[in-house]
Design a protein around this nucleic acid. Structure first.
Lengths: 245, 245
DNA sequence: TCAAAATGTCTATTGATATAGACAACTATA
DNA sequence: TATAGTTGTCTATATCAATAGACATTTTGA
């Protein structure tokens, strides 16, 4: 049977754009891992019900992004993206250091809420269980490719409204600065691994069985006061961590 | 200052489509509530940096949706959408009964996870705390307008994989049927009200201070066994409930 | 070595998208 | 009752999006 949702016409979104987005998602999902290449243009054109030239426009856009590389006579190869390197140090920030590895980095806000700290959060943030904390859920992307999803907690009394500031600036570092915290330090990072759960599969465009790297990290201000605790889940095949001593 | 993100060209998404989406979001956000009408076409054209005709295309699309109505000489009025009526009965389902009130209804999957039941979930689903449950978070939309966001829990042993089935069918009722439950009954509904939290503001496109109607509901199978417990948060100015006795 | 299969290039045509300008028609108000 | 402000309509032009067909070029494998 054909795919459940075909491309739509007359919506103001060009067909090549819709097709490019769906092919990229399929690649991230690992649908073509067995061959390492995208199906032939004629096949894709048939599947999507469009002209071959339209598929070529979509593939050209993906080639421009660096997602695929077309080779005449062979086919369109999926570029083995290098793993993004996350240096872990006292100056660890998400966007910093990634900027030169990817053309476009973005963090999208998934959820934002104020809640009471449970025992674990309280321990990391040096609060008492039940104290107000702000929870921020974000997804990190590099070149349209979902890389990580993070849940961060902040002391609500000190960083009231940090969610809204984050929404404006799109950066934790900038949000901190807006709220009067000019600098902070990565005090501790724990790294573990597990299998992807269903939330990972959807948010990170993974297949069942995929591996997730989990970091639990605490940031402090210059007086060693905790300002942020975050749990980040990375798609293991898209990242590596380096620790310099 | 101008808006932080302007419309983008050459992306495969038509300018009129981007502009229409942003105007619709502004309307839902209540930005024009003081006047009850959209700014003049010439002003919008200047704001977005496009020709007036392009703005007109966007407004024509919104008029087609029924969001606005243009009146020559006066301006473009925002249609006071009737509140969606949710009849609450033993046969309460989201999509049913709404279909004839809105042109297009949709439920988008926000999150999906398997977790352990806490005390409250366990009580509603007649389980023991710690039992496995599947949590499903969705947003309900009618005519592109976000109406509600719901969190539902299902007993994991009985409805394993209901999340994936839901993703395919886009309907709880159909997902139940796929998993062998042909019919179910709304056993209990509790209704409360509160102010919107930050999550509501983003997901439902509301302004601070907006009112949220909350339903806590339990569905059972024909043997009175609980099959679903859900907490749904409605934008209060977009819905009404009716209970027939 | 030949043929099949795949991407690359070219021309041509149609419709959608966007800009530009001018003016008509209508509403509200001074 | 003028007049300013607003939406509606028309013509014209340029570019983008999509389709169609033909053929070249390259790779792979029989």
């Amino acid at each position: 049977m054909a795919g459940q949702k075909q491309v739509q016409r007359q919506t103001g979104v060009a067909l090549w754009r819709q097709i490019a987005d769906r092919i990229r998602a399929s690649i991230n999902h690992g649908d073509f891992d067995s061959t390492g290449m995208v199906p032939p243009e004629t096949v894709l054109a048939l599947q999507f019900g469009v002209n071959r030239h339209t598929v070529r426009s979509a593939l050209a856009a993906l080639a421009q992004e660096g997602v695929v590389r077309a080779v005449q006579g062979r086919g369109t190869l999926i570029e083995r993206k290098e793993r993004l390197n996350f240096p872990i140090s006292k100056r660890t920030r998400f966007s910093q250091g990634i900027g030169d590895q990817a053309r476009e980095t973005r963090a999208t806000l998934l959820d934002l809420a104020e809640e009471k700290a449970d025992a674990e959060i309280a321990r990391w943030l040096h609060l008492r269980p039940g104290d107000d904390v702000i929870r921020l859920e974000t997804r990190g992307e590099a070149d349209q490719r979902p890389v990580s999803r993070a849940t961060s907690w902040f002391p609500a009394d000190r960083f009231a409204g940090i969610g809204d500031v984050y929404r404006m600036t799109g950066s934790i570092t900038k949000a901190f600065r807006e709220l009067g915290l000019s600098d902070y330090i990565r005090a501790k990072t724990e790294i573990t691994a597990t299998h992807a759960d269903t939330g990972d599969l959807t948010d990170l465009e993974l297949s069942p069985g995929a591996i997730i790297l989990i970091t639990r990290a605490m940031n402090t201000d210059l007086d060693d006061k905790p300002v942020q605790y975050s749990i980040t889940r990375f798609a293991a095949d898209r990242v590596q961590f380096t620790i310099e001593n």
